[in-house]
Computed example of a mutant assay.
Amino acid sequence: MSSEVELLRQQLAAAQQQLSISRQRFSKTDLPIFLDGLHKYLFFNLEIQTDEMQLTRGDPSNAHNKLCPRKLRAWESFPLEQEKIWRLFMESSLVKDELFTSLHTLEEMGENVRRQLIGSELDLNHFLRQTVEDHMSRIVEELYKDTQL
C-alpha cells in the first residue's frame, strides 16, 4: 500500500513539474527571457542562400541613396552614460513583468524564419524586421509607458 502511495506522489510531482514547464513555454515572458528567446529561436536561424542562381546580381558597391558615415568620432562619455541608464533600466518593473511574447510563439516564428533563405538585401531587410525591429519596437513601447525610463 505504501509503495502505491509513493508511486502516486512521484506521478503527481512529475505532472506538476510538466505543468510548470508548459506554463513557462506558453505564458508571456519577462524581458530577459524574451530577449534570450529572440536570440535562440529567431536570430540564430539566419540561413544564407548558397545557390548562386537564386542570389541577387549586380555591383555590391551600388550604395546610392544609402546613409554612410564620413567621419567617426569616439563617444568618450558613453560607458558612464550607459551604466547609469542600464542601472535605472534593471531596477524598473519592465525587466520583471511578463509583458512579452511566449517562448512557444517565438519557437513557431523561428520555424517560419528557417524556411526563408537570405539571398538578397531585400531578404535581409525582411529577416531583420521579423527578428529584430518588430520585437524591439514592442520593448520601446513598454519603455515609453514608464515615465522614469
Score class of each variant (00 low, 15 high):
Gln18Thr: 08
Gln18Leu: 09
Ser20Thr: 10
Ser20Val: 05
Ser20Leu: 10
Ser20Glu: 15
Ser22Thr: 04
Gln24Arg: 10
Gln24Asn: 11
Phe26His: 15
Phe26Asp: 15
Phe26Val: 09
Ser27Met: 06
Ser27Trp: 05
Ser27Ile: 04
Lys28Met: 03
Lys28Arg: 11
Lys28Ala: 03
Thr29Arg: 02
Leu31Gly: 08
Pro32Ser: 09
Pro32Gly: 10
Ile33Tyr: 08
Ile33Leu: 10
Phe34Ala: 06
Leu35Ile: 12
Asp36Lys: 09
Asp36Pro: 01
Gly37Ala: 06
Leu38Arg: 00
Lys40Phe: 08
Lys40Pro: 00
Lys40Glu: 15
Lys40Tyr: 11
Lys40Met: 08
Lys40Arg: 13
Lys40Asn: 11
Tyr41Trp: 13
Tyr41Cys: 03
Tyr41Thr: 01
Leu42Gly: 06
Leu42Ala: 09
Phe43Asn: 07
Phe43Met: 12
Phe44Trp: 06
Phe44Gln: 13
Phe44Gly: 04
Asn45Gly: 13
Asn45Cys: 10
Leu46His: 00
Ile48Pro: 00
Gln49Ile: 03
Thr50Asp: 14
Asp51Leu: 03
Glu52Met: 02
Glu52Thr: 07
Met53Asp: 13
Gln54Trp: 09
Leu55Tyr: 07
Thr56Glu: 15
Thr56Cys: 11
Thr56Gly: 11
Thr56Leu: 10
Arg57Ser: 15
Gly58Ser: 05
Asp59Cys: 05
Asp59Ile: 01
Pro60Ala: 01
Pro60Cys: 00
Pro60Asp: 00
Ser61Asp: 11
Ser61Asn: 10
Ser61Gly: 05
Asn62Val: 01
Ala63Ile: 04
Ala63Gln: 09
Ala63Met: 05
His64Cys: 13
Lys66Ile: 12
Leu67Arg: 08
Leu67Gln: 07
Leu67Ala: 10
Leu67Thr: 05
Cys68Gln: 14
Pro69Gln: 07
Arg70Ser: 14
Arg70Val: 13
Lys71Asp: 14
Lys71Gln: 14
Leu72Ser: 09
Leu72Ile: 04
Leu72Arg: 05
Arg73Thr: 14
Arg73Asn: 11
Ala74Val: 07
Trp75Asp: 14
Glu76Arg: 04
Ser77Phe: 01
Phe78Arg: 07
Pro79Leu: 07
Pro79Thr: 08
Glu81Ile: 03
Glu81Tyr: 03
Glu83Asp: 12
Lys84Asp: 15
Trp86Tyr: 12
Arg87Val: 12
Arg87Gln: 15
Leu88Ile: 09
Phe89Asn: 01
Phe89Gly: 00
Phe89Cys: 01
Met90Val: 14
Glu91Met: 11
Glu91Val: 02
Glu91Ser: 14
Ser93Gly: 11
Leu94Tyr: 06
Leu94Gln: 05
Val95Gly: 10
Val95Tyr: 08
Lys96Ser: 15
Glu98Ile: 02
Glu98Lys: 13
Leu99Gly: 01
Phe100Ser: 04
Thr101Gln: 06
Ser102Asn: 14
His104Glu: 13
His104Gly: 00
Thr105Gly: 00
Thr105Tyr: 00
Thr105Arg: 00
Leu106Ile: 05
Glu107Met: 09
Glu107Leu: 08
Glu108Pro: 01
Glu108Thr: 02
Met109His: 08
Met109Pro: 00
